[in-house]
């Protein structure tokens, strides 16, 4: 169902993906040599054989992938712009920010910041909706499901 478009210019994405998959599999294979020794006398496969077998399968499949034609470019996939990077940064900052604002306080700020970066410029509406969402989350998770959400220095303790 995807429209037919030109192949990706530049690096063959399949080869990049294959190299990455092979590197991960090789690292995992090497990692199996650092497992503890299996106690003697146990029958059947030990702890390392199955992961090693999977790693070998991944290496073989990666080699096959590297030989394949480069994929067609998805016309809907845009390169991330500055705002997208800023939204991702907000997502990354969410966890450390929880130490200060707690999960609910951080959520309220995140919803406003990410919404603004997404392109929404009606600030009162953003603030109103973020507060409403946080209120719903509090009602559902804290009051109904009795979940203890992490608190922060400024909010939630």
């Amino acid at each position: 169902m995807k429209p037919s478009v030109a192949p990706v210019a530049g690096a063959n994405l399949n080869r990049v993906a294959a190299a990455l998959a092979a590197a991960l599999a090789a690292a995992a294979f090497a990692g199996t040599f650092f497992f503890d020794e299996v106690p003697p006398g146990l029958p059947g496969l030990g702890a390392v054989e199955f992961p090693r077998l999977i790693c070998i399968v991944i290496l073989a499949l990666s080699a096959t992938l590297a030989l394949q034609e480069p994929p067609r470019r998805d016309p809907d996939a845009h390169a991330p712009d500055g705002s997208a990077l800023a939204i991702w940064a907000c997502c990354l900052m969410f966890i450390p920010a929880m130490a200060l604002g707690g999960m609910l306080g951080t959520s309220a700020v995140f919803l406003v910041a990410a919404g603004w970066l997404w392109g929404e410029r009606r600030l009162p509406m953003l603030i109103g909706i973020s507060l409403a969402v946080v209120l719903c989350l509090w009602l559902v998770f804290v009051k109904v499901f009795r979940l203890t959400l992490p608190g922060g220095l400024l909010f939630g303790n």
Binding site: F94, I95, F110, L111, A114, W118, L126, L149, P150
Partner: peptide
């Protein structure tokens, strides 16, 4: 508007991942 929807999905994801074991 996606500007309201997707950030809320992320917040729900964080709570959803944290919830079952209460583990960061």
């Amino acid at each position: 508007p996606p500007a309201f929807l997707w950030p809320a999905v992320f917040v729900l994801s964080v709570i959803g991942a944290y919830g079952p074991n209460q583990s960061m």
